[in-house]
């Protein structure tokens, strides 16, 4: 069998398949942006062409709360107050808090579980990791009641509380990594008189930039996508996240005739930050996938 002859049509077919798959992946995003820049009034007679006749930014302006109510209404809004600049900021704060604090605390714990010696260490670790088996909804209901009892409904504290200190996965992942670090460097530092804190802070952490960024990025992405918990705990306008705001926006929109241009403008805004992340850190993200997934 002559492989180069048999390969050719196969290869072309393979590329065609990949290209179609890519197109199907990207097209919905294109359509989202296309709708976001269409004047609401044009949507009915002009919803099939690839570009709108008269592109506009009014939909972005009105969901960002930059227009008066009358202007927003004229551009197809339902008259409900929208302020996506605030929701975006809330989401950024929410993600930053969780990713930053959780990564730091879990790396400390991961280091201790990997390197320090104290009685009960391994039992404690096993206990922590067993929480990986518990589906989130199981702790969601009691956590909601707890946050309610604490009077933390509609506060940032209540929203970040369950995840800011730890997730079992982050502890597990970082411990695995610290176990794989060569001991020689640390031993040299010990001879220089470094204590556990110095070892962690000045030796181990600087050597772990890759995994720290990986876990920080993954945590950021998941926090950005969070919906159910912030919906329960942070529905109020003041701390409302982008995801929750999108849900509320849809509910406020009339059922018979949703405000599609406004909804797609708001959707586009919810994608932009992660898109930026992908452009800036795409290589890192892609590489980290094999890291966390393939183990």
């Amino acid at each position: 069998m002559n492989s180069s002859q048999r390969l050719r049509p196969g290869r072309i077919l393979a590329w065609v398949f990949l290209a179609v798959f890519l197109l199907v992946t990207i097209f919905p995003f294109y359509w989202m942006i296309r709708t976001a820049i269409t004047p609401a009034a044009d949507l009915y007679h002009d919803s099939g062409s690839l570009l709108p006749d008269q592109p506009t930014l009014i939909n972005f302006a009105r969901v960002l709360g930059l227009t008066s109510e009358a202007e927003a209404r004229a551009a197809g809004g339902s008259g409900a107050h929208l302020d996506f600049s605030r929701y975006l900021l809330n989401s950024v704060i929410y993600c930053g808090l969780i990713a930053g604090v959780q990564t730091l605390l879990c790396s400390m714990a991961g280091y201790a579980f990997a390197r320090l010696r104290f009685p009960g260490r391994d039992l404690t670790f096993t206990l922590l990791v067993s929480a990986l088996m518990v589906p989130p909804i199981f702790t969601l209901l009691p956590n909601f009641i707890l946050v309610k009892e604490l009077g933390w409904i509609n506060t940032m504290a209540g929203m970040v509380a369950p995840t800011i200190l730890m997730t079992p996965f982050a502890v597990f992942f970082l411990r695995q990594f610290f176990l794989s670090l060569p001991r020689e460097v640390e031993e040299a530092a010990i001879l220089d008189g470094a204590g556990p804190w110095g070892l962690f802070w000045r030796v181990a952490l600087p050597m772990s930039r890759g995994p720290l960024i990986t876990i920080g990025l993954t945590t950021t992405v998941w926090a950005w996508k969070d919906f159910l918990w912030p919906l329960l705990v942070g529905r109020g306008e003041e701390h409302r996240l982008v995801t929750v705001a999108l849900g509320v926006f849809l509910q406020q929109s009339p059922n018979t005739q949703p405000d599609w241009t406004g909804l797609m403008a708001a959707s586009t805004l919810s994608v932009l930050p992660v898109l930026l992340l992908l452009v800036l850190l795409g290589r890192r993200l892609v590489q980290s996938l094999s890291f966390t997934g393939g183990k």
Binding site: T25, I26, F29, V221, W224, K225, D226, F227, V242, T243, L246, G247, S267, S270, V271, V274, L275, L277, L278, G282, L285, V286, L289
Partner: peptide, 10 residues
């Protein structure tokens, strides 16, 4: 990877 980064709500 793009769709994975986007919130399920979006």
């Amino acid at each position: 990877l793009l769709p994975w980064l986007v919130p399920n709500v979006t």
